[in-house]
């Protein structure tokens, strides 16, 4: 990518607003995702008390455990932002290092979520046990899928940077993946408080 530098200098400047198409598109997508998670969170809020014969939220949540995995996800936002900073300095080694760390932290979070789901299932909360169960697994599952997609993007990006064939502006691609990653993190900030810390 010999022309990356030239391209970087120019990027965005031939658009009417001077902003990059890709970044504008990503922000629009994130704005739209607010309505998606809003709908899932609201559904959970309506149904969290409808436990039927099954366990109540307070009985199945393991707050200390979830606090740790929330902390892990929060810190992955720091490593992500370090990857973006490295990419902007054209430091490929730093970029791939921090992207890998971010991906691993994300994988830890997803692993924790799987462990948590298994533990809840063993305590009697299946997907179809109650409306609370369905709504809870749907909401956290959607978030988990978003994190997983993010992890796949992070590791793919590492592989692609190593083979140095990112089409277009490398720093921008890292930044876009970063925006998505931070968004997944802020959604969890909300879920952690509204779902876990505030009891039904």
């Amino acid at each position: 990518m010999a022309d990356t530098a030239v391209h970087h200098a120019e990027h965005g400047h031939h658009t009417s607003t001077g902003l990059s198409n890709n970044k504008l598109g990503m922000w629009l997508f994130l704005g739209s995702e607010c309505l998606l998670f809003g709908g899932l969170i609201s559904t959970y809020m309506i149904y969290r008390g409808r436990v039927g014969e099954g366990p109540r939220p307070g009985n199945v949540f393991d707050i200390p455990f979830t606090s740790v995995s929330s902390f892990v996800l929060l810190m992955s936002s720091l490593t992500m932002v370090l990857a973006v900073a490295a990419a902007q300095k054209r430091d490929d080694r730093g970029t791939t290092l921090w992207l890998t760390v971010t991906g691993l932290l994300g994988a830890t979070f997803v692993g924790g979520q799987m462990y948590e789901f298994t533990a809840m299932y063993n305590e009697g909360l299946g997907y179809t046990t109650s409306l609370f169960g369905s709504a809870f697994y749907t909401l956290t599952g959607f978030h988990g899928v978003h994190v997983t997609v993010g992890i796949i993007m992070l590791f793919s990006l590492v592989a692609i940077i190593k083979r140095s064939n990112v089409p277009g502006d490398k720093a921008e691609v890292v930044e876009l993946v970063g925006l998505y990653w931070h968004f997944v993190d802020i959604v969890w900030i909300i879920i952690f408080t509204l779902v876990y810390l505030i009891p039904a």
């Binding site: 998606l36 039927g52 179809t128 369905s134």
Partner: peptide, 30 residues
């Protein structure tokens, strides 16, 4: 941009009810 995600949620809930046994809209399940 802002309306499609809302129907996405609704359709997912409906699909999960019909295909995976959830009861989001089933009055008999509360």
């Amino acid at each position: 941009l802002f309306a499609i995600p809302v129907i996405t949620v609704a359709l997912f809930l409906l699909s999960f009810q019909r295909n995976f046994g959830a009861t989001f809209f089933d009055v008999s399940a509360g």
